[in-house]
Design a protein around this nucleic acid. Sequence first.
DNA 1: GATCCACAGGAAATTAAGGGTC
DNA 2: GACCCTTAATTTCCTGTGGATC
Length: 448
Amino acid sequence: MCFLLVDEEKKFNIDDFFNKFMKMPEIYKKRDVLGNYFIPDELPHRDDQIRAIAQIMVCVLRSSTSLPSNIFLYGKPGTGKTAVIKHVLKKLAEKCLSSNMPAPNWVYINCNRVSSGYRILANIYNDIDPENPVSSTGLPKDVLLKRLCSLLDEKIGNAVCFIILDEIDSIKNKTAKDNLLYILSRINETLKKCKINIIGISNVLNFKDDLDSRVCSSLCEEEIVFPAYQALELYEILKRRISAAFIPGIVSEGAIRLCSALAAKENGDARRALSLLRRSGDIIARRGLTKLTEAHIYMAQNQIDRDRTEIFIKDLPMHQKAILLSIYLNFKYKQKQDSSSGEIYSTYCELLSKTYGLNKLTSRRVSTLVKELDLAGITSSKVVSFGRKGGRTRMISLKANDEIVVKCLKKDTRWTGFVDFKPSHAGRSDINVQFGRKYLSLIPPSDP
DNA sequence: GATCCACAGGAAATTAAGGGTC
DNA sequence: GACCCTTAATTTCCTGTGGATC
C-alpha cells in the first residue's frame, strides 16, 4: 500500500484558490486574442501575400465553377501563412454570400497530425460528411478515392472546394507524399461536377525540390513566399493584439519590445511572440499583479522552454527514453561532454540487458531515434571522422538541462532505478572507449 | 594514392496491429 | 472467419563517407 505524504500546511485548497483569484484585478479584455487559432480581421505586413492570393482566387466571384490555380505557400513557422489563407477564404466567402452566390467550400487538414496519404483522404471525406465517416484504415485506397469523388460531386455539386494541406512537408514518407499529391493533382479528371483546388503550406522553402516532377508541375502553379517578420513588424503586431487582449496600461513598453526582439531572434516567429505574451499575462494574473514587465517575459520564456522539454521527454516511447538515459549516463560518468553513437549504443544495450521483457533495438534504429532527439533539441550531435583508427561516427551530447532530463526520466518507473547506473566502459582507462560497439562484449549476458 | 575503420543513412522488406468486406 | 487493406515500427541490406594511417 502506498501513501502520499502531504504537508498539511501546504495542502492545496481549491475553494480558497478560486476565491482569491476572484478578488484579484482583471488584466484581460479578451484573452482569446492571444491564442494560436485566433484570426484577426487585419493582418499587418502581409498585404503583398493577401493581394497575390486574392488575385488568384478572385475568378470564383465570376463563376462558382471557375477553378483558380493551385497555390503553394512557403515560409518559416509563425510567418502568417495559415492565418493569411484563412483570412482570404473568409473574405471570399463573405463576398460570395453578399453577392447571392454560393460560398466556396474548404477543408483544412494539418498534415502534421494526419501524416499518411490514406488518412489525409479519409480526413477530407470525414470533414465533408462527418455524419457517415470512413474508417482511418482498412479500405483499399482506390475504393476510398472512388467514394470521396462521389461524395464531392454529391455534397459540393457544381462548385469549387479548396483543400488546404498545412505543414505538407511533415508527410515523412516520400512515396506516400508523391502518391497523395499525384492523386489530388489528377482528381479533377475523375470528378463530374465539383472542382478541387489544392493549397499547400510548407515550412520548408525547398519542399518543391523533393517532389516528383509530374506532381510539381501541376500542384505548384502559383508560389508565394512568406518572409520572416522583423522585430519592428512584430512590435506593431503585438501592439495591436495587446490593445485587443489586455486592459490598457497593463503591458509595459519594455515588455513589448523585449517580446518582439526575442521572437525576431527565433526566425521572426509571431506565434512565439504571442505565446510569450500569453504566458507572461497568465503569470501576472495568477499573482494578482497589474503590470507586465520584461522580467515576466523572461519568466515566461523559461517556463515555455522547460515545459516543452518536459512534455517531449514524458511522451517519448520506452526505447527512446532508454537511449536518452544512455546519453545522460555517458554525460554524467565521462570526463568528456560528448559520446560516440557506439558508446551510446553499448550503454543502451547494457541497460536493456538489466531489464526484463525488453528486446533491444538494432543500432540502425537507435541511430534514427538519436537523430530524432537531436531534431527536438534535446541532444546535440555532429558526424565526425577519426580516420583509419576510429572511422566515422556521430558524437552526441546532452543539450537540454540535465536536471530536467533526469527529473523526467525518474518519473518513468521502468528507468527510475537506472539514473545512477554506471556504464561498464565509463571511467576505464585500460581501453580506448572512443568506439562503443567494439565494447559490447563488456556487457554481461542478460539473465534468462 | 590506396586502404581501412566505424559507422551514417537510404531503401526495401518484414512484422504486428487495427479495421473493412464478403 | 478468411482474406484483404493500411499504417507504423523495426530490421536487413547495402552503399557511401571523412580522415588517419599505410
